[in-house]
């Protein structure tokens, strides 16, 4: 993005292409994003899973997912989140709770393929593991030796509990075992299960060991899943880092250390580096006008917020409040494309398309769930209408130009939003 006016943002066409198309470019890792910590903050680099900075980038053998595959997987994730939210809100609205031996079939969400990854250290001495970064689920897990049943291929060595002097299984009787959504018991050892909406799953021992977040910072006795049976669409990541609001998540486990505060930033380009910070030091740049309440009564795991309106080109769209309050809104690091209630999306699409038509941009075919696309062939820079998401309390997310357009190619650059099917999805 070269610049931003009140009603439009300028976007360089060459900057539009996300991974995997730009994977041949070099990694742009600035010094400030390398592992580090201050007295009140621990910082880890975040990179795009398929971008040139990813430790997994060499593992693909040139077989990167297509945009259609990325968007189809994203739709799986969105659907599974909606199924889970529907289940939990139905329960909270007064359905009698049964004494259930089994837990909800979907304890997490489909992973998708457009996720970002971070590298963690685990064990003593610490091994390095690149894991999927997920604010939409709680339990952290990695594939483990001896991989009793099945493991998918991963880029790094499997975590081997026998080589860690600080590893211990958690017993079935331990309170921590009760924190799991899906649990079992074998020989007195607590078993965990996570199953995602696309059929991917991981099962194994619920254990504890030292988690290293930076060269200076470690969490002793961190509880995680040591996966002995793992199948699914994990790419070649070693596992997953759960950052939700549930008891097993990293921010909740490390609450005493970091005060339940963390922050992340995703870079504009797939060749860039973002960060994941833990601790109160993440906060100084956030003024009250940039914050919105976390609506914790809506359900577990997810970070619910109150979306109240949308501006396109600086103008507030006429969307009744009930359109947003009927369904609610979550912020999810693992979903690629923002999903809006049908009426809100329809209004956004109409205003966006109208502004693009005024500028004379040529339309292009739809790309999977993205139905408002343009052909920018022959252009070096385009002017697109600004899009702002407005939240309870007055916070505004003025979407960066790199987040307004999702481009498969120069000739197929689309509005990076999609509509839900039903008003109450």
């Amino acid at each position: 993005a070269a610049g931003r006016g009140h009603d439009h943002a300028m976007l360089r066409v060459e900057d539009m292409l996300p991974a995997p198309s730009s994977s041949s470019s070099s990694c742009d890792m600035s010094r400030e994003h390398k592992h580090g910590a201050t007295s009140s903050r621990t910082r880890m680099p975040i990179v795009h899973r398929h971008g040139p900075c990813s430790p997994l980038a060499d593992a693909h053998d040139g077989k990167l997912p297509s945009h259609e595959e990325i968007l189809a997987a994203d739709q799986n994730r969105a659907k599974s989140i909606q199924r889970r939210v529907s289940t939990t809100t139905t329960v909270s609205r007064g359905k009698p709770k049964r004494n259930r031996p089994s837990l909800p079939a979907s304890s997490g969400s489909a992973l998708g393929t457009g996720n970002y990854v971070v590298t963690i250290g685990l064990g003593t001495p610490a091994g390095r593991y690149t894991v999927v970064f997920d604010t939409g689920s709680d339990t952290t897990w990695v594939q483990c030796e001896p991989c009793v049943v099945v493991c998918y291929k991963q880029q790094e060595k499997l975590f081997d509990p026998a080589r860690s002097s600080t590893y211990a299984n958690i017993s079935c009787a331990a309170p921590a075992c009760s924190d799991l959504y899906i649990k079992g018991c074998s020989g007195g050892h607590c078993l965990y299960g996570v199953q995602y909406g696309d059929g991917s799953y991981s099962i194994g021992f619920f254990a504890m060991d030292t988690l290293t977040l930076s060269s200076y910072d470690a969490i002793k006795g961190f509880r995680f899943g040591c996966g002995e049976r793992n199948e699914g669409l994990y790419g070649e990541a070693a596992g997953l880092l759960g950052l939700g609001r549930g008891k097993t998540s990293l921010p909740v486990q490390a609450y005493d250390k970091y005060g339940g505060v963390f922050a992340h930033c995703f870079p504009a380009r797939s060749s860039g580096t973002g960060y994941l910070d833990f601790g109160p030091g993440s906060l100084p740049a956030v003024s009250a006008k940039l914050t919105t309440p976390m609506l914790v009564d809506n359900g577990p795991t997810f970070y619910y917020v109150g979306l109240t309106g949308i501006r396109v080109g600086g103008k507030l769209l006429s969307i009744p409040q009930s359109v947003f309050t009927t369904s609610g809104t979550i912020v999810d690091s693992g979903t690629v494309i923002t999903r809006l209630p049908p009426a809100a999306y329809s209004s956004l699409r109409s205003a966006f398309a109208s502004a693009m038509a005024e500028r004379g941009y040529k339309k292009a075919p739809a790309l999977s769930l993205l139905d408002t696309c343009y052909d920018f062939t022959g252009m070096s820079e385009v002017a697109i209408p600004t899009v702002s998401l407005l939240f309870q309390g007055g916070a505004s997310l003025d979407v960066h130009a790199s987040g307004i357009i999702y481009a498969a190619s120069v000739s197929q650059a689309c509005l990076g939003f999609a509509g839900n099917k039903e008003d109450d999805d």
């Binding site: 994203d74 969105a78 909606q82 939210v85 457009g114 604010t135 609001r245 921010p251 909740v252 609450y255 005060g259 339940g260 505060v261 963390f262 922050a263 992340h264 930033c265 995703f266 870079p267 504009a268 860039g272 960060y275 993440s282 906060l283 740049a285 956030v286 940039l290 919105t292 309440p293 976390m294 970070y303 917020v305 979306l307 369904s327 609610g328 809104t329 979550i330 912020v331 999810d332 690091s333 979903t335 690629v336 494309i337 923002t338 999903r339 209630p341 809100a344 998401l389 939240f391 505004s396 997310l397 003025d398 979407v399 960066h400 790199s402 987040g403 307004i404 999702y406 990076g416 999805d425």
Partner: peptide, 30 residues
């Protein structure tokens, strides 16, 4: 449920404070 996805969060510092129950959006954070 509506979902704010990672494409729209690019370059924003997204801050989660579980204790204070707030989510913050800082522009131009990376």
């Amino acid at each position: 449920v509506g979902i704010v996805g990672n494409t729209q969060l690019k370059t924003f510092g997204v801050v989660y404070d579980i204790g204070k129950k707030v989510v913050g959006f800082c522009p131009g954070a990376c």
